[in-house]
Nucleic acid binder design. Sequence first.
RNA 1: GCUCCCAUGGUCAAGUGGUCAAGACACCGCCCUCUCACGGCGGUAACAGGGGUUCGAAUCCCCUUGGGAGUGCCA
Length: 488
Amino acid sequence: MDNVRTRFAPSPTGYMHIGNLRTALYTYLIAKKYNGKFLLRIEDTDQERLVEGATEVIFKTLKLVGLQHDEGPDIGGPYGPYVQSERKEIYKKYAEELVARGGAYYCFCSKERIDALREEAAKNNATFKYDGHCKRLSKEEVEARLKAGEPYVIRQRIPETGTTTFHDELFGDITVENSTLDEGVLLKSDGLPTYNFANVVDDHLMKINPVVRGSEYLSSAPKYNLIYEAFGWEIPKYIHLSPIMKDAHRKLSKRDGDASFEDFYNKGYLKEAIINYVALLGWSPGDNREFFTLEELEQAFDISGLNKAPAIFDVNKLRWMNSEYIKQMDLDKFHELALPYYRSAGLPEGMDLRKVSELLKGRVEVLNEIPDMVDFLVSLPEYEADLYVHKKSKSTLESSYEYLLKAGEVLNELDDWSEEAIKNKLNSLIEELGVKNSLVFWPVRIATSGKLVTPGGAIEILYLLGKEESLSRMQAGIEKLKGALDIQ
RNA sequence: GCUCCCAUGGUCAAGUGGUCAAGACACCGCCCUCUCACGGCGGUAACAGGGGUUCGAAUCCCCUUGGGAGUGCCA
């Protein structure tokens, strides 16, 4: 493909839907693949749905994930403006030209009349189609009514017979009967275009090719072709993308709180992991590779790997992928990302937080899990004595009591509270006692953490807590065991 | 209802007439191990159904079923 220019054309809703993000990604990748241009166009022709600050969210998100556009509202370009509400005059001019060319006509029908027609159709279980009432108006009458200032819309004129075929790069040729096509509104009574019209005009003027968009436009594509033809414009290549689903029946939606990029990002999913996962949702490189940076995607992406069926979003796999990215990250970087979570968890300033990061890096799947994983380092949770009973390590209340006491004694003698020293001290105790090391480590870990599951083992926890806190927690454990064993 | 589209394990998916139908996530088991996680090894699990075409069909055609989308002066 030559002279590739693609565009991401979201309407500003105030958040970046995961599905939109993927569309943006694929659109970007197609441009990059062919050394083309990637543009951003804001489709804000619906004045009733304007959301404050919504375009900024789009800029911010695209920038964050690295989908840098070559032309757009914020950076300009040769085919601006790139915001549809600023192109009002352009659409009006072309709509009038289309009327002159016979591809559209003025319609003065009231909303009430249209609603009645629609209701009638619904009653008959039929698809609504505008009845062409104003198509039959004489030229003189149209001019007179326009001159009188009557409100009007401009509707597309569609041949009553024959068929229209369009070609999609993925779906192939699709042919429909013209008689099934509705003569939809192109220019609204407020003078702004509908999506159908603005899209065609802008894509043409901005020299967009191929047109990449969601498959929800598949069934209206024939109508676009008719407009292109009426103008005598070259029809672009189309690539329609299947949707991302929450499950077999529902599309991913904002309502479920799992559809926006921001939500995931704020929970501690890495942008690289999100992009990587989403790239693979509906596209396959053809081999078994599944880790890609954006740059690698630019090389590997090809529309032949696109899947026509809808794809179900699997948070589980995203989690896994996120954890893989965390594992591959260097410690400094992870530490930096984890720090805010340590603060919110309330980890003491004096603690060796780098060590905490070392322990966590291989265990965290999503960053926002961190506080729950380290809470025990802040304060000893309430716990039951039966945590000391562990079949596999052969720990019982009795053994725990005995070895916790001994461990406390030897650790009390230790002045150098380094990991190495703690380890040596406990190991020599174990050797001296001639027991399985788990018999000592198990109760120490339980006493110092109060949790069945901890990131890291007894030695690391002792080290992190420091001597004083460790011994105090162990003492509390001894008291707890005394109570459970009924020792005075 | 009508029009269009889609269909390989629970999920993502490879496969483009000849494969014992890949791989990944999840799940289960074993190993490693002071818990968990990591890591290693292994396992369960799929061509929606029915007709054709063909020496041969997951792959091509038709029907059925299931699913999605559209049917707005929303995009």
